[in-house]
């Protein structure tokens, strides 16, 4: 009984200290974002890596999600003769929910893993220590540009994903379900509000920050050897994905009814 309580206590303490370390890590990293010198080259490299090279993954994901959404909502709404709402349902679901969450999860797999692997490898091969010996702060040189790039890039990716997702819905609506193109388009825009899009973009920025934070944090504290880097990579992807789903709820709840 006592050992049971001890276990709970120990787990809680471990959790709290991990949370504390993570918070400290992000505070330090964010402060270095705004302190010169600025490593533009690093930032640019990350923006290309996150923003540009994730386009195919995000595009494909949202395209097929928009398509399947059109089919499924048609099936559902046909049962009470509300087929007309398909376009509205597609655009609202994509911009408010599916675009950010799917893009976030896909990018978490791609970018979270590669950041953790790259920084983790630098840790276990002493490259991070080497930075310290060469008048460069690893947090500022490695972590800060990644956090900034993640936060900037995800909203753009999601915006493009939104358009592609809606386009996927349009293709199905027009070519498979027989909607009139002009009517489908006007239905798409009729009930869409700016706040739907901005909500999605705010979510995207939060997800982008969290993905980069998890990738950097786990890589930075990678255990020794190839095994340590492997574990860091897995942890980065899993924790980023979970944090995306949790923060997705929190942001939605925060803006609910707004």
């Amino acid at each position: 009984m006592l050992s049971f309580i001890q276990n709970i206590g120990r787990t809680a303490l471990t959790f709290l200290s991990a949370l504390g370390r993570l918070t400290l890590f992000s505070v330090i990293a964010v402060r270095w974002i705004f302190t010169p010198p600025y490593y533009w080259q690093q930032l640019l490299r990350q923006i290309i890596d996150i923003g540009y090279y994730s386009l195919p993954v995000v595009g494909l994901t949202t395209l097929f999600s928009g398509m399947v959404l059109a089919l499924q909502s048609y099936t559902g709404f046909a049962r009470f003769s509300a087929e007309d709402t398909v376009a509205t349902v597609v655009v609202l679901s994509v911009t408010r929910e599916l675009g950010p969450v799917l893009a976030g999860l896909m990018v978490a797999g791609r970018i979270g893993a590669s950041m953790a692997a790259e920084i983790g490898t630098m840790r276990v091969t002493d490259q991070i220590d080497a930075l310290d010996t060469l008048s460069t702060r690893p947090m500022q040189y490695l972590v800060a540009p990644r956090l900034l790039a993640g936060t900037i890039c995800l909203p753009f990716l999601v915006l493009i994903g939104d358009v592609i997702g809606v386009f996927g819905g349009y293709i199905i609506g027009v070519f498979r379900l027989g909607f009139n193109p002009a009517i489908y388009l006007s239905r798409t825009l009729e009930y869409l509000e700016i706040s739907d899009v901005t909500l999605g973009l705010i979510k995207a920025a939060v997800f982008g920050f969290l993905i980069a934070l998890m990738g950097c944090y786990h890589g930075y504290h990678s255990g020794r050897g190839a095994e340590g880097v492997g574990r860091a990579t897995t942890n980065a992807v899993v924790s980023a994905s979970i944090l995306i789903l949790i923060s997705n709820y929190l942001v939605t709840a925060l803006f609910f009814g707004v």
């Binding site: 490898t121 630098m122 091969t125 490259q127 080497a130 010996t133």
Partner: peptide, 10 residues
């Protein structure tokens, strides 16, 4: 400083 395994930036 030089490191045991080089630690050059890949």
């Amino acid at each position: 400083m030089t490191f045991q395994f080089g630690a050059l930036f890949d």
